[in-house]
Design a protein around this nucleic acid. Structure first.
Lengths: 221, 221
DNA sequence: CTATCATTCAAGTCATCACTTGACTGATCT
DNA sequence: AGATCAGTCAAGTGATGACTTGAATGATAG
């Protein structure tokens, strides 16, 4: 006797949801959204041990969210499909709408202040075209080097304080980071606004910008 | 010592994903998409025992995907937010794109034949306006009575064979059911096509139709 | 061919989950 | 108040998951 096709389908959908049901794996997926990565790099960025990270990757592979290829001694993982990012974004949206806890955390990130609405990517592109905006890439330098919005200046969060004097109080500042799951841009905007600067977050991050088909500058090109 | 806000956020997102990670709960959510329901009705429709169903509902409530209210002796559950349906649809899309197993099951539902593209809801609305289409609601009668597309004829799957003679071979037939997770429309279309009829599925089901703001007829109105 | 490096596998531990059974609670009906 | 009905809770079981540690694999460098 075979199980019903309906249950079989639900099992498959549940398999994908289960892949997203551990914070560690969401963190890995966020990293992979920046670009393909070896296991060690992923383990370091996510703070997981190597073996643990490898096992999470196996689970992501079982759900077919990631694929791997061999490159010499290394195994390089990448997202199977950009649609996964949309799924993760819906997940965030539903969580933000329904869970009071999420709002509390986000407010905490903004230092208790009300954060301004984020700038849409289309909006930023338009402002970049006429040059009336300062764009800050607040990711770590290695990720910036791998690709960033043309014209963006890289300032990892710890260095933010130091560059404050170089920012004009009149300038319109837009900060971005890895994407909707990343808190760097939230924190950067909160810090900048505390110093009276006119800063806002970009909606989404570099992966979403790239997915829109907008230009991405790679270091050394 | 407090955990980082980032991990706290990821935990919340993972909580929502975990709520979607059991087939039983996906099944419950699909039912709730039809309309609010008591625990017993949900248990019956999903084939879960009462206690088990209740416990799944607690988990859905923890993730804030459903809310409940008391009505006399009964507790009525409903979806907190229609965005949840979008999330579930993305889940399905990602699963269909990445998992070969899903394609295999869907092909099996269609009797091995290649199923035609579904009809979009806008398309069906246009055809209904000019009256050149036969719409079949292939859900159980009680769900049809609770609301259906105006002009749709209710034929639960087991009765489909009997009404075949009443369908013209020239008519264009569109079948719909509960939504993207429901297999009834797939099966109905396969059966109809096997008899040489020109049948296609509607994209999505009644909840999506309603969510579009299109008219829904309730029995006895 | 041996050594090295990147990754995976295997085994074990502790926690959580799905499901069952049977007792419990809270609202209604008589 | 007692009986009844809808739903929840509590405890127990077997399965799965997250994480750790240490051994095994597979490709390259010497």
């Amino acid at each position: 006797m075979s199980i019903s096709p309906k249950m079989a389908l639900l099992e498959e959908y549940a398999l994908v949801a289960r892949a997203l049901s551990a914070p560690a794996r969401l963190s890995i997926l966020e990293q992979l959204a920046q670009g393909e990565r070896g296991v060690e790099a992923l383990a370091e960025k996510t703070g997981l041990t190597l073996a643990n990270c490898s096992q999470h990757l196996q689970q992501l592979r079982r759900a077919a969210l990631v694929t791997s290829r061999r490159d010499g001694k290394s195994v390089i993982y990448r997202l199977t499909d950009a649609k996964t990012l949309e799924l993760m974004d819906r997940l965030r949206i539903v969580a933000e709408r329904n869970l009071a806890q999420v709002e509390r955390i986000l407010r905490g990130l903004s230092g208790g202040e009300e954060a301004p609405e984020p700038v849409s990517r289309a909006d930023l592109a338009a402002r970049l075209a006429v040059g009336t905006v300062t764009v800050l890439d607040v990711r770590p330098a290695d990720e910036y080097a791998e690709g960033h919005i043309p014209g963006a200046r890289n300032v990892a969060l710890p260095e933010l304080e130091q560059i404050l004097p170089t920012l004009s109080p009149d300038a319109e500042i837009v900060a971005y980071c890895r994407g909707p799951y990343c808190v760097y841009a939230h924190q950067a905007v909160a810090a900048l606004r505390k110093h009276g600067l006119n800063a806002r977050r970009l909606e989404g991050g570099l992966p979403e910008w790239r997915e829109d088909g907008r230009p991405v500058l790679i270091e050394g090109e």
